[in-house]
Structures are given as C-alpha cells and as structure tokens.
C-alpha cells in the first residue's frame, strides 16, 4: 500500500507543479504578451475578449502576484480554465467535447500496442536466435519515424490511394453522433488508420523491452523448474512472461506521456476532433487560455493514467504488497 501512496503523492506534487508552471510561465516571458496579443489581434477583438486575455495572464487586476495565484487556484478548483480568445467559449466546455475523442483514440491504441508488443516480445525472447530476430532492426525503424510522418504516409497510401480506410475526421459526416450501429461502425472504421499509426510507432518499444526481459527471465531457475516439472511449453513460457512483463508495466506510466505526445499529432494528420487538433489550432491562433487549459487537462489525464498503471503493477507483483519483503 505504501508504494501506491507514494506514487499518489508524487502525482499530487506533479499536478501542483504543472498548475504553478502554467501560472508562472506567461509571467516569466519577456515583454508583455497581453499587449502583443491585443496588438496582433487588432480590431478583431471585443472588449470581453480583451478582458479574457487579461484574466488569463492575471493582468489588469488590482492584485499582487500572491493574490493572483490564489485567485487562479480558486478558479481551477471550480473547473474554470478561462475563456478561449478565438472561440469565445469557456475553455472547459470546449475541452469537454474534445477530450473523449483523444482518450478513446490513445487509450485503445496504447492497450493494443502494449498487448501486441508484449506478446510479440514474449515470442521473440523465447525463440531467440530464430530468423524472426532479423525483424528487430525493422521495428526500430518504425519506432524512430515521427508519429505524424508515419500518419501522413499511411494516410497517403491506404487512405487517399488505396481507399482501404475512410480518413479525415472521426466518423462519417453523413451520420449524427449517437448510439446507433451505423455510427459505432463508422467510428471504428475511421479510427482504424489513426490507431494503426500509433500502434506501429509505439509497438517496437514494448516488443524490445519484453524480449530483453524474457531473455533475462529464461535464464532464471524457476523457468528451468517449470521445464523440470514437465509443464507444456505454453505454461513454461507463461512462467517467464508473467515475470518479464513487470518492468513493462512499471514503464507503462512513463510511456503514456510519450505516446500522448506523439498521438496528439496523429490527430492533426487525420483531422481527428480531439485535444491534439485543438492544441495545434490554439497554437496557430496564439489562443493562450486554450493552450494552457489543454496543457493542464492533458497533464491531469496522463497522471490519472499513470496511477492506473501503478495500480496494475501493484496487483501484478505480490512483492509490492508486503512491506516485510526483503
């Protein structure tokens, strides 16, 4: 239990750091971003928007920095992330419609990638020295390709030219979102290529990690014992894999951050209506309240996913459950 509590407190601290960085960063930057921004948006901004910008930077308020900070924290507590400059809507409501897409896309891709990579790594580690080993350099190539580039190539080949997959958007524009079979089917069809892109880019990491751990585990006595017990091969492999997967699960929480970073751009390529696409629009429009809101929401979601991964590790490794362990 202590291990989980320690992780939880780490995430609380991390969340606080992210929130505070969000507050300090605009105030650290040279020049006065508010003036610059209002200047850039000359004539296109209403007084309310100017007010929104000033609020986002804590300026134009007759408060010192400490008061501003606590005011900012108070706003966050109530779920207020400010108002988007370009979209003239509360950031929180904009995000509410975008977050499910991203969580769905990245969640499904990460789970698939982890499963496929772990199973492939198990087999590669067990049959080490077989001709499948020569596939390893190829997988590192996919790992090294930027997600957005791979997405673009996949889009070009399988979407635009071969028309194997529908692309651009999250579902067919002829359908209304809802729980109909046609919509769910369309959702899956449109999701295939983005998911495939993310899985291809991230699977090599899981695969190699698992392969190396399998090789290490197979040299352990308990795996030899499993053979000596006359267990079928499948069960012997499971003995090794059950232990070899632990470092992968421990790394899961770290990897989520990386996958999220890459996947955000995949949304851009496939014009997926998620947070990534929103973030890029916000960056292009210099919509600072939106950028900040997105950053916070992504960070919080990643931290929650991390905690989930930690709970999984806790369940899988009995040694974390007993404090008396050597």
């Amino acid at each position: 239990m202590r291990m989980l509590l320690r992780r939880l407190s780490l995430y609380v601290v991390t969340a606080w750091v992210a929130i505070t960085a969000n507050f300090i960063l605009p105030r650290l930057m040279p020049g006065n971003p508010v003036e610059t921004l209002i200047g850039q948006l000359q004539g296109r901004v209403s007084p309310q928007q100017v007010r929104a910008i000033q609020l986002a930077f804590g300026m134009g308020l007759k408060q010192n920095i400490v008061q501003q900070y606590f005011g900012y924290l108070g706003q966050l507590m109530h779920g207020h992330l400010g108002v988007s400059i370009t979209l003239s809507a509360p950031v929180s409501s904009i995000l509410r419609s975008a977050v499910p897409w991203t969580v769905g896309l990245i969640g499904v891709s990460t789970i698939l990638s982890f499963l496929v990579g772990t199973i492939a790594g198990t087999m590669l580690g067990w049959t080490r020295g077989s001709r499948f080993d020569s596939l390893i350099p190829l997988t590192t190539f996919f790992q090294a390709v930027p997600y957005f580039f791979l997405g673009t190539v996949m889009l070009l080949i399988f979407g635009s030219n071969l028309h194997w997959f529908p692309v651009l958007g999250a579902y067919s524009s002829n359908l209304n979102p809802g729980w109909s079979w046609a919509f769910v089917f369309s959702l899956i069809r449109y999701g295939e290529l983005p998911v495939l892109t993310i899985v291809l880019s991230s699977v090599a990491g899981w695969m190699l990690g698992m392969r190396n751990m399998m090789i290490t585990m197979v040299a352990e006595d308990f795996v030899l014992m499993a053979v000596a017990k006359g267990l079928p091969r499948r069960k012997v492999i499971m003995h090794a894999a059950r232990n070899a997967v632990l470092p992968s699960v421990a790394n899961l929480s770290l990897a989520i951050g990386l996958v999220v970073s890459g996947a955000l751009l995949v949304e851009l390529v496939f014009n997926y209506p998620g947070v990534g696409n929103l973030l890029l629009q916000a960056v292009l429009n210099e919509d600072y309240p939106l950028i900040q809101g997105i950053f916070l929401v992504i960070t919080m979601t990643v931290l929650a996913a991390n905690l989930l991964a930690d709970v999984m590790y806790f369940v899988l490794d009995p040694r974390t459950r007993t404090e008396a362990a050597v």
């Binding site: 352990e220 006595d221 308990f222 014992m225 499993a226 053979v227 000596a228 017990k229 006359g230 003995h239 059950r242 232990n243 632990l246 899988l316 490794d317 009995p318 040694r319």
Partner: peptide
Amino acid sequence: RWSQISIVLQSALNALNPV
C-alpha cells in the same frame, strides 16, 4: 518429468516463481 524424476535446487527462492 516430475512424475518420475523431480528436482530440488540449491536456492528455493530462485526456484519458486516469485509472483
């Protein structure tokens, strides 16, 4: 294996699957 020949290793800690 095991039904006719079984083995006891030096280190039971390593011979038993830790999980």
